[in-house]
Design a protein around this nucleic acid. Structure first.
Lengths: 116, 116
DNA sequence: TCACAATATCGCAATGTTGTGATATACTGA
DNA sequence: TCAGTATATCACAACATTGCGATATTGTGA
């Protein structure tokens, strides 16, 4: 009943954060992030595709979504395209998931907006 | 190229976690969670509705989604229904968002599956 | 019992997401 | 230049989500 609005997170902030969270809300995209995080180096699309066990075109689409959100960055070298994590926001989330694989799970991330 | 699959988070786990993250990927639902977290006590639907500035029917639907995922719990008392946080998984996420309102933002959560 | 307030559900149109297969583009080496 | 490999885009059907207004349900107090 009493007004808590000064304590609440700005609706504007929530609206900015929600799409980033949405990007993480898909098993395949989480897998891509996890793979790139564990690899700790740029990876080419065919490797990412293989580790996902999904159709290349679908993986490519998901890579684009992640890139458009600024989570990934890519660089072409010859016929290959290397993807790497550009925004480490969601890594905390992955770490939490990993640490709780049996029983309770965790999700944690730090969403950077703008520069690193 | 080399096989990192033993280090990767199980696809099964990612598939279980993704829907919970998805539930958080909406500004209104984040607002509801934030409001209940800050209030730190059960709140009735009309209060939640007011703090959301959305149509009652829509808020009610979102409350159901959160309840169905086990994030919220509710209890009717007379003509009112009190909602409260049942699963503190996503609170870490809210805390991270709050701490980074200006500049970089953060998302963090611990997803409990099953009992508290 | 009835009017009323609080909440929930329904029905629906608009929009977005998922996943596939076909096709296009970019680059390399022969 | 051409065939071939790697990646991206397109078109599309199936399905899910968003958000609203109308209607239903639940419980209270008169």
């Amino acid at each position: 009943m009493n007004d808590l609005s000064p304590k609440l997170i700005d609706m504007e902030v929530l609206e900015r954060v929600a799409p980033v969270i949405r990007v993480a809300a898909h098993p395949l995209r989480l897998r891509i992030l996890d793979y790139l995080a564990v690899s700790n180096e740029p990876k080419i699309v065919s490797d990412i595709t293989e580790c996902c066990g999904a159709a290349p075109s679908f993986v490519s689409q998901q890579l684009r979504i992640l890139k458009d959100q600024g989570i990934l960055r890519c660089q072409r070298r010859g016929t290959n395209v290397y993807y790497t994590i550009a925004d480490r926001s969601l890594l905390h989330l992955l770490a939490c998931i990993r640490h709780s694989q049996g029983g309770e799970q965790a999700v944690g991330a730090t969403i950077h907006r703008g520069e690193e």
